[in-house]
Design a protein around this nucleic acid. Sequence first.
DNA 1: AGTTTCGGAATGAACGTTCATTCCTATACC
DNA 2: GGTATAGGAATGAACGTTCATTCCGAAACT
Lengths: 191, 191
Amino acid sequence: MIKLEKRTEIIHAALELIAEQGFHAAPMAMIASRAGVGAGTIYRYFANKDVLITELYREIEAKILPCLLEGYIEKQPIRERFLHLSMALLRYFIIHPLYFRYLEQFFNSPYGVALRREKLLGRTEKRDAYRELFVEGVAGQVIKDLPLPVLFALSFGPLLAVTRDHVLGFIVLDDALMARTIEACWEGLKK
Amino acid sequence: MIKLEKRTEIIHAALELIAEQGFHAAPMAMIASRAGVGAGTIYRYFANKDVLITELYREIEAKILPCLLEGYIEKQPIRERFLHLSMALLRYFIIHPLYFRYLEQFFNSPYGVALRREKLLGRTEKRDAYRELFVEGVAGQVIKDLPLPVLFALSFGPLLAVTRDHVLGFIVLDDALMARTIEACWEGLKK
DNA sequence: AGTTTCGGAATGAACGTTCATTCCTATACC
DNA sequence: GGTATAGGAATGAACGTTCATTCCGAAACT
């Protein structure tokens, strides 16, 4: 339907503007014009700006999760599963830099602070995969016996930082460098 | 002088509001009222909001650097120097959570993006201490031969992440946990 | 010493701008 | 022709900034 066409255009325009320049550079009027749509039209598809922004977040999240778990083998050793998940995560963000930058903007904004709180307490597919990994690894004496948030920090901290550096053009993350970086993370994690 | 009194009040009000709630929650009128000052008075001390925010950033940065280098011994082995710097950094942020949160807001805002670019290319005292450490460590075969941004990511990524988790109340970073976290970072770094 | 004058500091109401949202008209579809 | 959809000008709230005015302590004068 044309309805979905427009909705997609609006979402995509918002994604581009926010990812490239941040929320301050994405007023509704500009989103509308980049989407080739009238300002009022946006409100036929989204109740307000908050809804648009949150919906966009959810769409991105929903696309990432399956990619991470593709080829993921529960039976493999902890180390291999960690390498797999992390490699998939980095590759995904490298292929979709707009998504990465949008997520960064989102989590570092008022929109995302509540969600971050949920993340650490509640659960998400992605975090869950990692969480299970960590819990199992700690129990099996494979991973350091540190609080879960610290294990997350040791993994996601470096991974997101190198992704940012790549997206901003400070380094070039090829498969080899990604693998070496992830391996270094693992060495921090392992017992 | 009374002049400095007011300036200090204004800076402190801005620090509190921005650190606690983000830039969106710190209009000039609110900064003024929290500082116990008229709205126009701010402009006697700062040309505009950008200047106020940047000045506040510089003041914080200037306070941190000396603390990191206190008791820092150039002659010590790389590992010990890394542990020292990192311990000092974490301790500082734990003691001054407002500074930490302000810096986070600052770097994740339009104000800070330009600066971050400078940081990675140019130089700062703090980053320089780490940078020298890394360069020396790579040359001496003590640290993995990875690009500098990756080494920074492996260090600051986890350190800032655990600090954030502590400040947000998800974990309690005591000296023992700090030391274990930093040790884990080092294991990722070392050859 | 008491009174007046003076000047910089402080003030907050007012202004212009920006933005999200609404509303009414024009258009497309059946 | 009647209904649903799109558009973009209109609206009002919020914000950073300005400026005419007030305030206050110190100098100057008697």
